[in-house]
Design a binder for these strands. Sequence first.
DNA 1: TCAATGTATTTAATAATTAAATGCTACATG
DNA 2: CATGTAGCATTTAATTATTAAATACATTGA
Lengths: 300, 300
Amino acid sequence: MARSDTRYREAYNRILAYCETLPLDAQIPSETQLGDIAGVSRTVIRRCLSRLAELGVIVWNGRDKRLLRMPRPEDRIAVPEAGSHSADLEQRFLDWVLRFDVPANTALSVAELSRTFDVPQHELKEFLAGLSRFGLVQRRPEGGWRLLGFTKGFAIELSDFRTILELHAVSQVAEAPVDHPVWAQLAKIRDDHVQLRAHMDSDFHEFSKLDERFHQAVNSVVRNRFTVEFQKVISLIFHYHYMWDKTEEKDRNAAAIEEHLAIIDALEARDAAAARNAAQRHLRTSKTTLLSSLRQHDLG
Amino acid sequence: MARSDTRYREAYNRILAYCETLPLDAQIPSETQLGDIAGVSRTVIRRCLSRLAELGVIVWNGRDKRLLRMPRPEDRIAVPEAGSHSADLEQRFLDWVLRFDVPANTALSVAELSRTFDVPQHELKEFLAGLSRFGLVQRRPEGGWRLLGFTKGFAIELSDFRTILELHAVSQVAEAPVDHPVWAQLAKIRDDHVQLRAHMDSDFHEFSKLDERFHQAVNSVVRNRFTVEFQKVISLIFHYHYMWDKTEEKDRNAAAIEEHLAIIDALEARDAAAARNAAQRHLRTSKTTLLSSLRQHDLG
DNA sequence: TCAATGTATTTAATAATTAAATGCTACATG
DNA sequence: CATGTAGCATTTAATTATTAAATACATTGA
């Protein structure tokens, strides 16, 4: 009927474990210190002490707190399963949208999403509020939310935004010092490209992973909290769409390999302008592919 | 104790007004049609019809709904004041943060904010969840939120991000067709710059507004949902910091006028490269100013 | 037959409830 | 008597419960 007491339960077990490290009859530290040990407020600590005294583990009279007997396994209190995988909600949500091709303008029910993702409703509300900042969802006047994404307009603007960020990243790479880790990464990635090109006929499916590694490496040079959030969403969307658009996959991947190599060539020559041009060509291709994949799914 | 019935109350008054347009004894449209008129579901419409029947305005027996008498002013129902200014919450929140120099790592209490901004708590939670996507706030492990912004690191990354977006915008302007409205705007803005320069000694405070107009015009060329959100936040933060950092304001503004004019010159000459260079110079100055203003407020 | 109403179910906004944090006062102890 | 500690009171926030509203389904009547 109200908030859970998981915090108390976890703190209690932690304090109990701490008691095990003490000798019998030892003085127990002050409430404030115990609070620091368990990472909770004094309010919670006092609840813990109450229970410890009740079970006869300690004697508690004001400042006089002493260990009466060693804690036993049955003194521990049950903690109700962390369960909810709130952590990777974003990943799972985008995965769901893209995997099931949830069409634009679909009404999103918090109650339903809460069930399918096994996450409390209020967390979902917060999550959706966050996504609305990216223009992926929007509040409906009649209540609830609406999925906006993955129209043609969305794809175009997403691609454009990606281009802006990635061209900047490429410029940054070109100016990175020789001892920057990106150079080693790019060298390895170049080799892998060359190798894949040699076995293209059989292994062309492998390109998707390589593509992600390449863009990841380039973008890793930019250290900016504003871009990092976007890159996560962007790379997910492009990644999935490439995986599903199977038309001419081999030719497309072969072309992309050459484009990647052109970018790496220019970067290693420290020719920023050439690198930008090569990157621009590559990103234009990506945009076209994304758009045609949308057309295929009849979402244009 | 539960959600408000404002929706019903507004719908009721709207239906009442609709009844006034009907002749006496006229048939009233179907529930579905009334729902379309008032923009609500049939559930709400049936509540409205119940009340109308109770007051004797209509007679309602299944499908037979007729107007018994003309509605009177006292038939209307009170609507409980829209009140909450949820609309400009973002503006007011950032204004508050910047005006009172709320230091980084301040704990934000939803209850308190809810009072000071006169907005329901759950709306504030959603709002903060949105801001967390921009890295402005963060959840605290012990509950609630923490203001992150306005450290040196934040200012640097914000400036860098602004630079990325704005350099792109400048490139776009340079390629805009001659009949694009931006050219007329820029011409006017150039005149205003020249005029202000002539009366700089007395009117230098006017520059702040001019600065906002200039950047607004340049960015207006880019139509992208992802950049629009950011620009709002960015321009607010820069705007306020400029207003408050009074050191050498006149000199700073005079220099900025020249920098703006240089950008406009290059743009009107359709020299994209020169425009980008000029913009880069200007944005570097801005970044320095923002950082020194932070140092002044001891937030570094 | 089909559009309208009647009824049931589901969803979402929001207050109520309880856990937990925070703040203040009084006290004990060196 | 200063400082840290416990006791007590207040405030805040997570989470449930409640009610308004939307939606889905069944029934009816022209």
